[in-house]
Design a protein around this nucleic acid. Structure first.
Lengths: 153, 153
DNA sequence: GGAATATGATTGAAGGTTCAACTATCCTGT
DNA sequence: ACAGGATAGTTGAACCTTCAATCATATTCC
């Protein structure tokens, strides 16, 4: 059994700030979306990705990857979004195993409304609070983390 | 109804990198803790805070605040941790409404074991991947976010 | 061509989180 | 002293996520 190599105190401070801060920030965003528009952040992310896809359609697997969700979770969430009328599913013509999720017009309008408030919350609790140079650092750092995590799968 | 002030493209890029990256990173940590030690990250955080508290005891409300959890969630989680024998609860002598959670010796040992692996995962997927200067930026940024979020409550 | 295997997606059950309602104790002002 | 209100924590139900099993279609390879 190898010795544990602890983080240095500054590393530990920074790491903890991230863990606590990100949990709180994502909580604020989730609550604000939910109370204002009845959407969770996970649902919102799905709608965003669909809205940007060509024809507002995406295969389930790709949507899951883009929204950082498991396929199972996406299936359940899509079922709920479908019941709300925001998304519809159809079988993929080129691969009959596949399913295309697509954003309905109602879904698009719901997203437009939610996005307005959401962006303001992101501004108030993130963009305005963080120095521009630190924001860039965050972009760099987390892009690298995404690469690292995806490499490990 | 006011116009939506969208983020600039670089702001949007950085923001999305953070959302995606942090979800994936926290997922990796959660899974690694769960598969290796049967603990969720939320449970781990609770054990850490308790281990650092004087006498390894903390009031529920303070523990909830330090672990960025709701009181309700903490209650449920403590019930599970108690069933595993890692935590015990006792009524607070100075305020009979209050409850003190305290880490058992078994809980402390479980934490020691989990921490060893956890720190290595944090190293592999975070510390080693992020430039030192960017790490400092993250510390600064999220400390400011914590202040901002807590101010809004 | 067809058996074996891989991939895409869904399902149900188990486990965890949130929300609102509730109990109990403590504090405040009169 | 005590009514009213605030604070601490728990609870159960509804909701969401995870996990393992399943079904169907596609691909590989002999």
């Amino acid at each position: 059994m190898s010795e544990t190599r602890w983080l240095t105190p500054p590393q530990q401070r920074d790491w903890r700030a991230f863990v606590d801060g990100s949990v709180r920030l994502l909580d604020v965003l989730d609550q604000s979306l939910k109370s204002g528009h009845g959407l969770s952040m996970a649902e919102y992310e799905i709608l965003v990705r669909l809205s940007e896809a060509p024809d507002r359609k995406l295969r389930m697997a790709q949507l899951a990857a883009e929204a950082s969700q498991s396929r199972s979770r996406l299936s359940h969430t899509c079922t709920r979004l479908e019941q709300k009328g925001l998304v519809r599913r159809e079988t993929c013509p080129s691969d009959k195993r596949g399913v295309l999720a697509h954003l309905t017009d109602e879904g698009f309008r719901a997203l437009e409304r939610a996005a307005h408030d959401h962006v303001n919350t992101v501004r108030d609790f993130f963009i305005e609070v963080v120095e521009p140079a630190d924001l860039e650092a965050i972009g760099r750092a987390f892009s690298a983390i995404i690469v690292r995590v995806d490499k490990s799968r």
